[in-house]
Design a protein around this nucleic acid. Structure first.
Length: 994
DNA sequence: GAGCACTGC
């Protein structure tokens, strides 16, 4: 009998830790789903009880806990119900029945009988291991390293550390800085730029800014686009200090939400001062920095970097001024920083805080910072004429709005019937009435056209007609079209290429999946007589600025993702933009001259747009935020959250705290654990952290580090519009059955080919800049794990770190460990001579693969089998799984997944994992799996309490070797290949999946 | 019937 040992020193056993290190979305889902109940139970069980327990008993116990409604599945309708009510009653009954059936169903996996000689060999090895694994772990706990994080308190730290303010005045230094600045102002570079700087509207406010900043702790600067606040304010403060002999106690930090902004603004400011970066101006973003001189200087950084600074020095005692830019965007990190700063200034009266925002919703910030003074600065954008749908239809005479562009299957039409009726009603209410009020002001033809609800769905024919109209009737100037998604961009791009001759038009698609920042042509002015047309996602709204845009076509919709806890999927839906988006899009037309913005919706619609986006902190899962707060020594996270500008729901916080607890990052008392600290220091999501830890232990670090970096940042593979097939083929060359390994292999080959890296990237559709970034991230991972002693080689590619990096089966199993519990099964059916691939997740959802996945080639013939995936998405009506790896060993899932249950039915042994997949096997195989899991979980506990590299000559090394041996057993389930996973009708499952 | 929002340490 295998007993699961519970150590007092660890609040949560390592098996739970392992089992629960799963993606935040899945963790979120677990909260509400039946699996959560299952997990809660297994946690209890695993603490002291033998975990080999009958699956049916487990299910029964679960059922008794999950019955929250009256069970009516076997009842008859109560007498007295008639007509509609009776119908509703039966509908509810059948729904409950279905749910119950679904709950019972485990995805039945293949048989996994180990060959008998293998069984004997593994058994022998395990016996020798077990004789030697009774060391007392609790005595080896090294708690001194993280005790600070449990005992210290952010507010106390501020109080004690404020004494150690590092800004001391030195008249000698003041003089030197003064002289240096006087020299600067005489240089040609400085004087040339000065002329331009003086024309900026903010220049008129210098005195006001300086006065208010001197007299107050907090000042808000609300400036319109083009007023120069971002580049000038920090300089005004610095210049004032330098000329008044106060340079030695002035150090300014200025945060930006995006990396590109931080670096490009720093460059710009350095140029304006006639300097190189690193003198009085510098920047710091993740993995990249040019620090300015230590005093009398400005540092531009991302908000995330500021948060890291606060971990080291809670009072920010190196700095005299903090400027937080773009606070109106309401990023989660920015909101957290504002709350922290509010606490810091209570104790650091000398600290000056300057908040900068666009001129919208500034009252909210003023109130938050106790009526701090506000400086309003006007912008110098050129006037932009705004035309709405009624004006555009009137002007262009377009009346051919298609009723419904897409043919839909019957079930879709049926399913969305109600939704459609609602939409039509709301259209009538909002737009219909408005259109009626236009009588007399617009032609009857226009009014009739606008009465069609189809005018509110994006019609690419109409957009193309409008572009044509602009090109024929309006003066030269670039056209920017803002659309919601890749498909529309692609379609419009293609049809424009067909109809607009390249001699007169140059057309760029702009999307984050495309080469994006790598090709600069998009910013160049086209030759005379050639018109530039950019078809873009909303990323051109803030992230990318194309100066010469004169015409903006705003389609009015935006694709917003939200996580559906019931479906366990990230759902993408096109929704109306906000008023704030509308203003921002309009502003994009007037950067260099006066422009026109075409809104493809009526003023009636514009009037009912929501004013602002919901702040990010209210929309996202809070695990990572809470973890960083814990590392900042904020013990009472719940209380802290109430001090934010917008307070998240308590249930939202509870859910995230519970997740962190199950991950093992927090204890039951919500204290940070060593693992939590490791995960926070790695700066990746817990699931990625898990992969990195597994890779360190199994000594296959380099490829997994590549994968981890790509998962945390982005895939280096890009797409070229019109060459999608070539791009996908290039990716498949690197791995036939794993998207993640394709990335890892691409990075390895890129690294090896050190001479022709750029051409290597070019010929394989890889982004060189992303590769460089990923490479740096890998170094950061290896350093972090080296310093915390998980690795004993500080190079990602070091031999010690990569004993098993060639073992593809191991790599796949670890990827599966990091993506758990996202598992899907591909089965093949031959119907009327046609192959039908059916991919089902463990939640019984039928999904598809994107053609960009190496496992999603529509022309390939894949073998049936398991795949693990990163995320489940829903676009329009279909579910898709992304970043897949197929042919993962079932033993990988059994070893790195969560609790396993073994049972015997009709003389056949079964082993199931996480209550999701069940494998047929024999008792020998079960014994081996259980023994290995048990030993491996103990090894993990051991490693986390006291990090140390694996010694491969000792028992732990032997254990890992045995596990790898098991993972590489092949051809386990030949018999299973062409068997169906379920006998259900296809249609039935489609219904379930929706 | 079927093709992909955007950031950050």
């Amino acid at each position: 009998m295998q007993l699961h040992v519970c150590f007092e020193s660890v609040q949560i056993s390592a098996s739970i830790l392992l089992s629960s290190l799963c993606p935040k979305n899945i963790l979120g889902k677990l909260q509400t789903s039946k699996i959560f109940e299952r997990l809660k139970l297994t946690i209890k069980m695993s603490k002291s009880v033998n975990y080999i327990k009958s699956a049916s008993r487990l299910r029964n116990e679960l059922r008794s806990r999950t019955v929250h409604e009256r069970d009516i599945t076997n009842e008859r309708a109560p007498p007295g119900l008639r007509g509609r009510e009776l119908g509703m009653w039966y509908a509810q009954r059948s729904k409950q029945r279905k749910e119950k059936e679904l709950e019972k169903k485990l995805l039945s996996g293949p048989s996994i009988y180990l060959p008998s000689e293998k069984v004997e060999q593994l058994k022998k090895e395990i016996v020798t291991l077990q004789a030697n694994t009774s060391s007392d772990l609790s005595s080896r706990v090294d708690s001194s390293h993280f005790s600070r994080y449990r005992s210290a308190n952010f507010m106390e730290l501020i109080k004690t550390e404020k004494e150690a303010i590092k800004l001391h005045r030195s008249s000698e230094l003041d003089k030197r800085l003064y002289d240096d600045f006087q020299m600067t102002t005489k240089t040609k570079g400085y004087t040339q730029m000065l002329e331009f700087r003086q024309k900026l509207p903010s220049f008129q406010h210098i005195d006001e800014i300086i006065d208010l900043v001197t007299q107050n702790n907090v000042v808000l600067i609300a400036g319109k686009t083009g007023c120069g606040k971002t580049t000038q304010v920090a300089q005004y403060i610095l210049d004032h200090a330098l000329t008044n002999m106060e340079g030695s106690k002035t150090k300014i930090i200025c945060t930006q939400p995006r990396r590109i902004a931080a670096t490009s603004i720093a460059e710009r400011v350095a140029t304006e001062r006639g300097e190189e970066l690193g003198h009085s101006v510098g920047y710091q973003i993740r993995l990249e920095k040019i620090p300015p001189r230590s005093i009398g200087s400005i540092l531009f950084c991302t908000t995330g970097v500021l948060l890291k600074f606060l971990e080291i020095s809670p009072t920010l005692n190196e700095y005299s001024h903090i400027i937080i830019d773009e606070i109106h965007e309401r990023n989660a990190i920015t909101d957290v920083c504002l709350a922290l700063i509010k606490k810091i200034i209570e104790h650091r009266k000398d600290l000056k805080v300057i908040l900068m925002s666009a001129t919208l919703n500034e009252e909210k910030f003023v109130e938050y910072f106790n009526d701090c003074p506000v400086i309003h600065i006007e912008g110098i954008t050129y006037p932009v004429e705004e035309l709405f749908l009624e004006d555009i239809v009137e002007e262009t005479g377009f009346d051919n709005f298609s009723k419904d562009t897409r043919k839909e299957p019957i079930w879709c039409q049926y399913k969305y019937k109600k939704q459609r009726i609602n939409q039509a009603n709301s259209f009538e209410m909002i737009v219909g009435n408005y259109v009626n009020s236009l009588r007399g002001k617009y032609s009857q033809k226009t009014i009739n056209t606008l009465k069609n609800p189809a005018t509110e769905t994006i019609d690419l024919k109409f957009i193309q007609h409008l572009i044509q109209y602009i090109c024929c009737n309006k003066p030269s100037g670039a056209i920017l079209v803002i659309l919601p998604g890749f498909t529309m961009i692609s379609q419009l791009h293609d049809s424009l290429l067909k109809d607009f001759p390249p001699s007169k038009f140059i057309i760029y698609p702009l999307h984050s999946l495309l080469t994006g920042n790598d090709h600069r042509n998009i910013f160049r002015k086209p030759p005379d007589g050639v018109r530039k047309i950019i078809v873009s996602t909303p990323l051109s709204e803030t992230s990318i600025t194309i100066e010469d845009v004169v015409y903006v076509i705003n389609a009015g919709k935006m694709r917003r993702p939200f996580f559906d806890f019931d479906k366990g999927a990230t759902i993408f839906e096109d929704e109306w933009i906000t008023k704030a988006n509308e203003i921002q899009r309009k502003g994009r037309a007037g950067r260099v001259q006066k422009g026109i913005c075409y809104h493809l919706y009526t003023r009636g619609r514009s009037n009912v747009l929501e004013p602002f986006e919901k702040p990010e902190i209210l929309r996202i899962r809070l695990e990572e935020t809470i973890l960083s707060l814990k590392v900042l020594c904020i013990q009472d996270v719940r209380h802290f959250m109430t001090t934010l500008i917008d307070v998240p729901e308590m249930s939202q916080i509870d859910a995230s705290v519970n997740c962190l607890r199950r991950i093992g990052a927090l204890t039951d008392k919500e204290e940070l654990t060593p693992l939590g600290l490791h995960l926070a220091q790695l700066g990746v999501h817990p699931k990625v952290g898990k992969m990195l830890l597994l890779a360190s232990i199994f000594s296959c670090f380099d490829p997994i580090a590549s994968i981890s970096a790509a998962l945390s940042f982005k895939s280096p593979f890009y797409t070229v519009m019109g060459k999608e097939d070539l791009c996908n083929r290039a990716k498949r060359k690197f791995s036939p059955d794993s998207d993640q390994l394709a990335v890892a292999n691409a990075i390895t080959q890129w690294r090896t080919d050190s001479i022709n890296q750029r051409s290597f990237c070019h010929s394989n559709f890889l982004s060189h800049s992303t590769m460089v970034m990923l490479d740096r991230m890998k170094s950061q991972f290896v350093q972090s794990l080296y310093y915390s002693k998980f690795l004993n080689d500080s190079q990602t590619g070091g031999i010690e770190n990569n004993r098993n990096s060639e073992n593809v089966d191991l790599l796949k199993a670890i990827v599966g460990g990091g993506t758990y519990p996202n598992i899907a099964y591909r089965s093949i059916k031959i119907r009327k001579g046609r192959r039908i691939d059916k991919i089902i997740t463990t939640e019984s959802k039928r999904t598809k693969l994107l053609p960009s996945s190496v496992n999603g080639d529509p022309n390939a013939q894949y073998e049936p089998g398991f795949m693990v995936f990163q995320e489940l998405n829903k676009f329009t009506h279909n579910y898709y799984i992304t970043e897949t790896t197929s042919n993962v060993s079932p033993f990988g899932i059994l070893l790195f997944g969560d609790e396993i249950v073994c049972e015997v039915r009709d003389g056949v042994h079964y082993i199931s994992v996480g209550g999701m997949i069940e494998f047929r096997c024999n008792s020998d195989t079960i014994d081996i799996v259980v023994a290995l899991r048990d030993n491996f979980n103990r090894l993990i506990e051991n490693k986390i309490l006291k990090a140390a590299p694996v010694s491969w000559d000792s028992d732990e090394g032997k254990l890992l070797t045995v596990i790898m041996d098991l993972l590489t057993v092949r051809n386990l389930y030949e018999d299973y290949k062409y068997q169906d996973v379920s006998d259900d009708d296809d249609d039935d499952e489609i219904k379930q999946s929706n």
